[in-house]
């Protein structure tokens, strides 16, 4: 049953990816990308990665779609048709070869199967994290302060420094958007120009933002 569901979801993902690559209407592409993220979140749920699925649903299907839509407001609805169709053949061949190579490596008998307890990734650190989460983080009163979500303890405590880096990355992205597109341009123009321009600029900017 799980295999059938997985296959169906992966087939949907493949069809969506093909459609996203083909369709030129950017509004439709944005919506399809949102659906793609939601399906990916479902795949993550089936893989028992609930935290990742949650993030994918909130960030990939939610915010990213809205940000793409607001970026679409600033550009055309349609992508320009490709002038030379043969030019996209090279990347296509490259991608197919890479995908085939990745699938081929999973067929290697030395690769651990999905969920294999003996996989190298489960051999080191992970058992210690799992055992110590209750012992160390919950200390001597496991019932009182025990943190059941190992993902949270790993993310915020064992790898606290790593997560600090991630937050700084988001901080940098926000500051970067502010510097590139931020309000400074508006403010500078409102301070400097002649009165007639100023009034026309302010009026239409209010109208545009409200639309």
């Amino acid at each position: 049953m799980i295999t059938a569901t997985n296959l169906a979801l992966l087939a949907f993902l493949a069809v969506l990816a093909w459609a996203i690559a083909r369709i030129r209407n950017l509004f439709v592409v944005t919506m399809l990308a949102g659906i793609y993220s939601l399906l990916t979140a479902t795949v993550f749920v089936l893989l028992d990665a609930v935290d990742v699925a949650f993030t994918e649903a909130a960030v990939g299907a939610g915010i990213t779609t809205v940000l793409f839509l607001s970026a679409l407001l600033l550009t055309d609805r349609e992508a320009k048709p490709r002038k030379n169709r043969l030019a996209s053949l090279g990347p296509m061949v490259l991608v197919v070869l890479l995908g085939a190579a990745l699938v081929y490596t999973t067929l290697d008998p030395r690769m651990p199967h999905y969920g294999d307890a003996k996989a190298p990734a489960h051999g080191r650190l992970a058992p210690e994290f799992l055992a110590d989460t209750v012992k160390q983080v919950g200390a001597d009163k496991p019932t009182a302060t025990h943190i059941p979500n190992v993902v949270t303890t790993t993310l915020a405590s064992y790898r606290g420094f790593d997560t600090l880096g991630e937050v700084v990355v988001i901080f940098t992205a926000g500051v970067g958007v502010l510097i590139l597109l931020g309000g400074n341009a508006t403010r500078r123009r409102r301070r400097n120009p002649a009165p007639r321009e100023e009034s026309s600029g302010a009026g239409s900017s209010g109208k545009g933002a409200g639309a």
């Binding site: 607001s70 508006t186 120009p193 321009e197």
Partner: peptide, 15 residues
């Protein structure tokens, strides 16, 4: 910032 940008663009066209 993205949503406010539309207003900036229209204002710039006016200018």
């Amino acid at each position: 910032t993205f949503a406010g940008r539309r207003g900036v663009l229209e204002a710039r066209e006016d200018v």
